[in-house]
Amino acid sequence: MSKTVLVINSGSSSIKYALLDPDSGESLASGIVEKIGNPVGTITHKHDGEKFVVEEPVPDHGHGLKEVLRLFEEKGPSLHEANVVAVGHRVVQGGRFFSGPALIDDSVVQTISDLIPLGPLHNPAHLKGINVARELLSEVPHVAVFDTAFFQDLPEEAARYALNREVADKYSIRRYGAHGTSHQFVSQEIAKLTGRDDLKQIVLHLGNGASVSAVVNGHAVDTSMGLTPLEGLMMGSRTGDIDPAAVFHLARVGGMDIEQIDQLFNRESGFKGLVGDNDMREVWKKCEAGDQNAIDAIDIYIHRLLKYVGAYTAVMGGLDALTFTAGIGENDSLVRQRLLDRLAYMGIVYDPKINEIIRDPHPRKISTDDSSVEVFVYPTNEELAIARQAVTFA
């Protein structure tokens, strides 16, 4: 009988979930609980080609997860019959404590809690989901899979900032990275696809949040996100790289406090701050209409991508494979075209017709046979990656 894993990604006001067969990769069901704590919440459950939507008050995560379990029994598939052998939980911040998945016990829960200062937007929400799920599904092991784990063994030259050593160590300030589960999954799949485990790879995880990693022989050697997911590429609503002195300037000259600056950098910048919209489809429409702000924003976005690809190629001493993944990476052919055209000097050659394909769930190579670098579009699957790591504890 096939084994399945229930994967849970608990946010501050949502719970995403999926039931997967880690061996075949098949998703048997998936869904999301939204607007937890609002007067009316929404629960969407998908199974066997059908979608079921429930609108009702969801006062807390406990109520939301109980409703999810009810939908599994009423709409299918029954968790009792699906042979669920583990529950995998996404956790963003694992600090320097977790270099791989961890079987959740009280000590792991405490460590995740202790790491809240490093992951204040994510870890508290993950803990809510973990605590509720452990209570409701107590008969199976629960496993934490950390976004930071893949970057745990970054070289010191990449992980350490040039900050006073005592201060940095006292307050655990270093490069932790994020989206590690996606970067690890995609880089491993590209190694399988090419039949090579000695690749020098760059993975571009481009979504509303965006990051890039450099991977050599299956190990990450650099990544763009840092102490928090704010650093690195320009994103939907985040600044990405910015002079830290901008904080001092906004405080001294603009009279802004830390919370206001945090809000500005994380939620009111990026495409949202430059264009007024963080939906790339809308940004491109504005470009086509001649909106100079949108045109400038795309130029800034591509410029930042270009800098990181160039820098990481230099760090690795070469580049064998470049892969686009996540929502924008997989579905925005114009972003890929703009970047690859700028990388032609490296000998990268791609097929425009294959590049134009979007909404395709299958991996594809878009570079030509005479390209110096193989270029891929590979759909990420963080849920499957979590399931495969969690099942090792079953």
Score class of each variant (00 low, 15 high):
His362Glu: 15
Val68Cys: 10
Asp291Arg: 12
Ala394Tyr: 12
Lys353His: 12
Ala158Arg: 02
Gly327Asn: 03
Val203Glu: 06
Gly31Ile: 02
Gly273Trp: 13
Val53Gln: 13
Leu322Thr: 07
Pro379Phe: 02
Gly273Thr: 11
His219Ile: 05
His47Phe: 14
Ala29His: 10
Glu74Cys: 09
Gly270Thr: 13
Ala191Leu: 02
Asn208Val: 04
Leu69Thr: 03
Val132Lys: 02
Asp370His: 15
Glu189His: 09
Val84Leu: 08
Val68Leu: 10
Ser13Met: 10
Ala314Val: 15
Gln292Ile: 14
Phe376Glu: 12
Tyr308Thr: 01
Tyr301His: 08
Ser138Gly: 03
Arg267Leu: 13
Leu6Gln: 05
His61Val: 04
Ser113Pro: 01
Leu118Ser: 04
Asn331Tyr: 10
Ser182Gly: 07
Asp222Glu: 07
Ala125Met: 01
Ser113Ile: 01
Gly88Asp: 09
Lys66Ser: 14
Phe185Met: 12
Asp277Lys: 12
Asp21Glu: 15
Val315Lys: 07
Ser172Glu: 06
Ser269Phe: 08
Lys75Met: 12
Glu135Tyr: 06
Val145Ser: 06
Phe248Thr: 15
Ser107Ala: 14
Glu74Ala: 14
Leu274Ile: 05
Gly76Asn: 09
Gly273Gln: 13
Val109Met: 13
Ile104Arg: 12
Pro141Met: 01
Val215Thr: 00
Ser14Phe: 11
Gly49Ile: 03
Met235Gly: 00
His219Gly: 05
Ser269Leu: 07
Arg134Pro: 06
Ile43Thr: 05
Gly195Glu: 01
Glu135Gln: 13
